[in-house]
Structure formats: C-alpha cells, structure tokens
Nucleic acid binder design. Structure first.
Lengths: 199, 199
DNA sequence: GTCTATATCGGGATAGAC
DNA sequence: GTCTATCCCGATATAGAC
C-alpha cells in the first residue's frame, strides 16, 4: 500500500526509461529529471554524475533479465526441452523490456572495454550448456555447439532489435501484427531449430 | 591515377567512418575534421549542418550495400540456391562494413520516423522473394514465408552486431577466432536453414 | 576554398538559499 | 532533501581574413 515512492527509485525508474531508449550518449540529464518530475540538480545529489547513474541502471537491468535465463540453462531438462523453454523465456523477457537488447548491444558496441567486464559477470551460463549439446547431439552429427547457441540467440534477439524495420516494412506499421509475429516465434523458433538438428 | 582527391569525398569518407562507429548522437564534428585532416569549419562549408552531412552519408551507405543483396533476391536461382548465395553475400558485405548493421539498426531504433522512410526505398527486394518461398516450399509444409526470411536475416546479422560479446565471451578476445567463426557461418547458415525446411 | 577567431548554445556539474 | 542560480566546458555554427 506504500504509495509514497522515495525519490531515489523515482530517479532510477526515469533514468532506466530514458537510457534504454536513447543510450548513454544521447541521453540528457534534463530529460531524466523531467521524466521523474523533479529538479535536475537532484540527480546529482543522489548520483554524483551521469556516468554513475548510468552504471546503477545498467547493473540493475542486467540483474533483472539475466537470472531468468541462467536458471533455464542450468536446469536439468533435456536439450530439446531447453530449446523450447529458452525461446519462450528469452522472448517473454524482451516483451517486457523491448529496448533491453538494443540498449546492451549498442553500449557494448560503442564502449566494449567499459561494458564487457561487467557483462561477463552475468554470462557464465552460456558455457554451462556446451557439454550437454555435445553429449546429446553434436558428437554423432556434425553440429557445432557454438554455432547452435548463436543461432538460438540470433533467432530470438534480432526480431526484437529490428522492430522498426519489421513493423514498418513487413507489417505496414501495424503494432499488433508485429506483436503477434513475435508471439508466434516462441513456438516457431524451437520448431525450426529442432527440425534442423534432429535427423 | 587521379591521386588528387577532392575535399568533398575526403569529408564523406571521414564522416562515414566516424558516424558508422559512433552513431549520429555521439559523433563530434571535430572528430570528422581530424579524421579528414582538414579544418572543422570546412565541414560546414560543404554540408551546412551535421544533420545534412549525416543524411548524405546514410544515403550513400545504404545504396552501397543494399543493391548487392537485392540483386540476389531478384535473380532466378532456386530457393535453396538463393539461401546459399544470400548468406554468403550478406555476410561478405558485412565483413567489409562491420559497423553497418548496428549503425542502421541503432539509428532506426532511436529515430524511426526520420530514418524509416528513406530506408523503405531500398527494401523492396524483401517482398520479391515471398512468392517463390510459397511456391517452392511453404504450400505443402507449414512454413511461414515471413518467419523464414526473418530467420535468415537474424542468423546473418546478429553475429555481426553482437561481435563484442561473441569475441569477448566465447572467443576470449581472439579476433581471428571470431573472424573464422563468421567465415564458417557462410556455409553453416544455409546448411542449418535448408536442413530445417526440407523434409 | 581554406583557414582563424568568435558567437552561441546546450548540457553536466556545483554553490548556496531554504 | 529540494530548489534556483550559475559556472564551465565542449560542440555546432558563423564571420571574416587570406
């Protein structure tokens, strides 16, 4: 019932929204202040610099999204089950945070030396699936575990970051058609992938 | 033999390099001037504003990369042949312009209303392949032409824009390993896709 | 056409009143 | 803790000399 939100979380929410949409470089402190409905200098009172505010956001966003996925990968489902759950979990997470993938990839791309280390802490899960892939399929067929992982990531993430093109060109700017398309992919991707790797 | 490059193309080349790496918002006119080895105010002499300079670049870059792809799609190869040529052509184009996909997607993402219209002019080719897909495969199987196109695009483009993660996390920062991986995908993607859609 | 100097503006950050 | 006023720098853009 606590309706009184403290200023700090007010700022964090506003900053998250603006940073995710515009990226670090294009974000203005003024815009965050407006979004939060407070004064610009309050931002500096709570987080000394724009950089520190960004860091706080980045850490928070990563630790919100990544664990959901990590949990799937380290569970003890079969590989085919994991592929199905993975696509569903990934895409569902992005439906809630549609700017997340572009945000992370863009910051990584323009500032790898700064962003990559902190990103690394969160991605141990990727390697954990390798043994299982090798065990369940790639030993007898000529399937490369790394290529398979990247295929899964590509198929899930690209349609999210390319939303403006897909929506604008394939779906004549119809938001709902785009959303349906994404929803359908939760089933289509596993079907497509599993179809390819099982003989 | 014409070694005397005129100032305008000098500027365009420099601007292309910087804009593609940093995006519009984070690019400084000074940096473009330095890269071109000329004075900052010359930029304004040739292209009145940063915005106009950017527009010139964007148009040029699009018209350099897109036609190569368009040509493949409108040729009269079979669908399976096209899938092979498409992956090779696409990835080869990105090997030469590694920042191109992130550049375009990021500008689209942060400024769709401005960028999308000009982008549209170049992407008529996508629809041209639909009838062929429907004719050659999707009628008898339950394969959606749109999903298939997006799968191809995803598999080709994502590994390029996610380079920092792949290189940093999968390949321990080894540039050559990353490049080999991308090279291999020219064959792996068609194999993966064709394997999935042919019964 | 190319340069130097300068105007102008916007944004991050700080000082200080309340 | 929150606001107003202000500093200061960096970046776009223009004026004007050569």
């Amino acid at each position: 019932m606590e309706k009184e939100i403290n200023t700090e979380t007010l700022i964090l929410n506003a900053a998250k929204k603006v940073f995710m949409q515009k990226g670090f470089g294009a974000t203005r402190m003024q815009e965050i202040a407006d979004e939060a409905g407070i004064n610009k200098s309050l931002l500096h009172y709570y987080f000394r610099t724009k950089e520190k505010l960004f860091d706080a956001i980045f850490e928070e966003v990563l630790s919100q999204v990544i664990p959901k996925i990590s949990k799937v990968m380290t569970s003890d489902y079969t590989l085919f089950e994991k592929i199905e759950i993975f696509a569903d979990t990934y895409i569902s997470a992005f439906q809630k945070n549609p700017h997340f993938p572009m945000f992370v990839l863009h910051e990584l791309s323009s500032n790898p030396e700064k962003i990559l280390p902190r990103f690394k802490n969160h991605l141990g899960y990727i390697e954990k699936i390798f043994p299982q892939i090798k065990k369940e399929i790639s030993s007898d067929k000529n399937i490369d575990a790394e290529q398979l992982i990247i295929n899964m990531l590509s198929l899930c993430i690209f349609p999210i970051i390319a939303k403006p093109i897909l929506k604008g060109i394939l779906f004549n700017n119809d938001e709902n058609k785009y959303l349906e398309f994404i929803e359908k992919r939760k089933k289509e991707i596993p079907k497509f992938v599993i179809n390819s790797i099982k003989k």
